[in-house]
Design a binder for these strands. Structure first.
Lengths: 165, 165
DNA sequence: CTCGCTATTGCAACTAATTGCGCTTGGGGC
DNA sequence: GCCCCAAGCGCAATTAGTTGCAATAGCGAG
């Protein structure tokens, strides 16, 4: 399997992340406290890591980075904190092509993902295309899709006819 | 979470399974041998289990059932056999909404799946609808989708406005 | 019927993710 | 500035799935 490049600058450009992003994270501490939750060093570490990881990350990667910043980090804490952050809409989780947990940091708009089994890259599905999918399924049997949780696999244009699989 | 009903008879009827199905399994032994592979008691057990499980099953369920028939069944063997059967197109694997392995027995036509986070039921995506999705993504960036590997979650018509989540 | 090659098996170790539980501690109240 | 107590933490055990490796056993050849 090739390196899992995260091809956001490609055919389907991801939402622009930048200044606005930092602001969102600044408020986390207060956001949590407002909900009766607490701001702990461990959560601070995870948020620090998330700040530098715009886009998509696997839970395992997050845990590894946290460990670099704080040697005492425990997996269970990271997973639990991610759950909390998800409730606040700061991250969204989905499952990669191999079924492993994958987190989308600061999902500015709901979007699905494409995974190329040829080169291992992932793309975001453009909103318009996503809408087409949602519409198709709504028409089919009144199903309202939760796009954020979707990862569709296949082969990108480049790998279309390569025999890598 | 409710029982995960497999709602094949619903809005999106699954392909009819029956007589033709049995035939497909009858040839497995020869099919394998023709490919230089072997027909072992363990594989026989798994195939026996698959015979009684038209539709969708999780890997765990298959392993459990194999254990009932043959107490000595090992998980690794089941997974490996499943891989082999997949290469012959006799089963197809995907990932359920929670990322767990899920196998589709004798997929007569490629199809994706819908999972309702409200009632836990799953539906198959109708071929026409699936085609619409494939087309949309092909148009987007020349991506050729592997529908069989897709599970999209959301809420079905019935659960549309229930607050179960 | 026996032999040998190699596909397969079973074990054991390992990764990813999840959960129950007792101890710790953030942070509002006094 | 000190107390309290539920939120949260770390640990350890559990489930699902995967992999390396040595021993086993299909099955075609002779």
């Amino acid at each position: 399997m090739p390196q899992s490049a995260t091809n956001q600058g490609g055919p389907a450009p991801a939402g622009t992340v930048g200044a606005a992003t930092a602001v969102a994270w600044d408020g986390v501490a207060d956001l949590l406290r407002a909900g009766g939750l607490r701001w702990t060093p461990q959560r601070r570490t995870l948020v620090d890591v998330l700040k530098e990881h715009e886009g998509h990350v696997t839970a395992t990667e997050l845990i590894a980075r946290c460990r670099e910043l704080d040697r005492t980090t425990t997996p269970s804490t990271v997973y639990r904190t991610l759950d909390v952050l998800e409730e606040f809409g700061l991250v969204a989780h989905g499952h990669g092509p191999d079924g492993r947990e994958e987190y989308h940091v600061l999902p500015e708009q709901v979007h699905g993902h494409l995974y190329c089994s040829g080169c291992g890259a992932t793309w975001e599905i453009r909103p318009e295309t996503g809408a087409a999918i949602v519409d198709a399924l709504a028409a089919d049997l009144g199903f309202s899709v939760d796009l954020s949780h979707v990862t569709i696999s296949g082969r990108c244009r480049g790998c279309h006819d390569s025999p890598t699989d």
